Computed example of a mutant assay.
Amino acid sequence: MRLLILGTGGMANTHAKHFSAIEGVTIVGGVDVDPGRVEAFNTAHDIPNGFGSLDAALAWGEFDAVANVTPDSVHHPTTIAAIAAGKHVFCEKPLATDHAKALEMTEAAERAGVVAMVNLTYRNVAQLQKAREIVQSGKVGKVRHFEASYLQSWLVSKAWGDWRTESQWLWRLSKKHGSNGVLGDIGVHILDFAVYGAGSDIDKVFCRLETFDKAEGNKIGEYDLDANDSFAMTAQLDNGALGVVHATRWATGHFNELRLRVYGEKGSLEVQHRHDWSKLFTCLGDDVETGTWSEIEVEPVPTNYQRFFEAVKGGNTLEPSFRHATNLQKVLDLATLTDRDRREHLVSA
């Protein structure tokens, strides 16, 4: 598979690292509107061809697939152009900034017959994969309740860098720069973490969003700091389970931590994932009577990068697909509406 990496910012380096390690994948080009950045990126990863635009790369055309690592608001037009050229697409999350655009991308990919997948990175967590397997096996019984959280602290700590002085972070805090805040950025991750682990999609949602004061006039240079910083959501799954989902960038002491708890009639499980480790605990069978929890050892699983390569090789889209990411985007859109309307919305409506 000949791969083009579109966008050469921070996350593009992760794509280059993972894809270059897969036998059968050759990264043939990098694309960025900043000539210096694409040159530095190509040099760092030994990539032979650089382009200043996707149009220029498509005119060249000597590649099979695109890793779309552009900012959120650019996903839609660039992905549509790549699909129209018959290229497979591996897109960063969120798929688009709203459900309508995500649906257009999905339907275009399905009509074209190209492989279209989204890099919901926490699918790479083996403990989450095992949790889903346990839930689907029936060992926890009918799921009744769940809790999911995504905690970050980069608005508090400088461990990630200083957003007050480093403009690379500021677009994530500004609506006019294409950000839907925590809800759009990491909300899509924790929603996927929850529905995948609990084995059921979301049916009803109610959400509250909050944007906190962060600078004088909530503005730094050209950036209005108006995107949401925290959200708290109640949700009901298709399987009837009721739960809570929340995320924030103000979680002091938590660099990057996801957690999922699933409670069933016969047992329960908990997945903990941090930047430096992952764990899975279960309370099943006779242990339910004593409240005894056991840690489960789990083998590594193929990454999304490997799965995309296998999907292209086999000619069939695997999960996480554009269609799945589009369904998640509908939940995100409705979450914003519920905050405005102060009432629950039905996802399937």
Results as ranks from 00 to 15, higher is better:
M1N: 14
L3H: 03
L3R: 03
G7Q: 10
N13D: 15
H18N: 12
V25M: 12
T26A: 14
I27M: 08
V28P: 01
V28G: 01
V31M: 11
D34L: 06
G36Y: 00
R37Y: 10
V38G: 08
N42C: 13
H45L: 05
H45T: 11
G52M: 05
D55E: 14
L58M: 12
F63W: 03
F63E: 06
F63Y: 09
A65I: 04
N68C: 15
T70Y: 09
P71N: 00
P77L: 12
A82M: 13
A84D: 14
K93P: 06
K93Y: 08
D98L: 04
D98H: 12
H99W: 11
H99Y: 14
K101T: 11
K101Y: 13
A109E: 12
E110M: 08
G113L: 08
A116W: 01
V118H: 06
V118M: 05
L120S: 09
R123Y: 15
N124G: 02
Q127M: 10
L128S: 03
I134G: 00
V135D: 10
Q136I: 00
S137A: 13
V143W: 09
V143D: 04
R144V: 00
R144A: 02
R144S: 03
A148Q: 09
Y150L: 07
L151T: 00
V156W: 05
S157K: 09
K158Y: 00
A159W: 02
S167V: 15
W171Q: 13
S174Y: 07
G178I: 10
G178T: 04
N180A: 13
G184R: 07
V188S: 05
V188I: 13
I190Y: 09
I190E: 03
I190M: 08
F193M: 07
A198G: 11
A198P: 09
D201H: 04
R208V: 00
R208S: 11
T211Y: 12
D213P: 00
A215W: 01
A215V: 12
K219C: 14
G221M: 11
D224M: 14
D224R: 11
D224N: 14
L225K: 10
M233W: 04
L237C: 05
D238C: 05
N239K: 06
N239D: 11
N239W: 10
L242N: 03
H246A: 13
H246D: 11
A247T: 06
T248Y: 15
W250T: 02
A251H: 06
T252Q: 02
T252A: 01
E257N: 04
R259S: 13
L260H: 01
R261P: 00
K266N: 01
L269A: 05
E270F: 05
S278C: 10
S278L: 03
S278W: 04
T282F: 13
G291V: 12
T292L: 07
W293K: 02
W293I: 08
I296P: 04
E297C: 04
V298Q: 08
P300H: 05
Y305S: 10
Y305A: 01
Y305F: 15
Q306S: 07
R307Q: 10
F309G: 01
T317N: 14
L318R: 13
E319Q: 15
E319A: 15
F322G: 07
N327C: 11
D333E: 02
L334M: 13
L334G: 06
R340E: 12
D341S: 01
R342V: 11
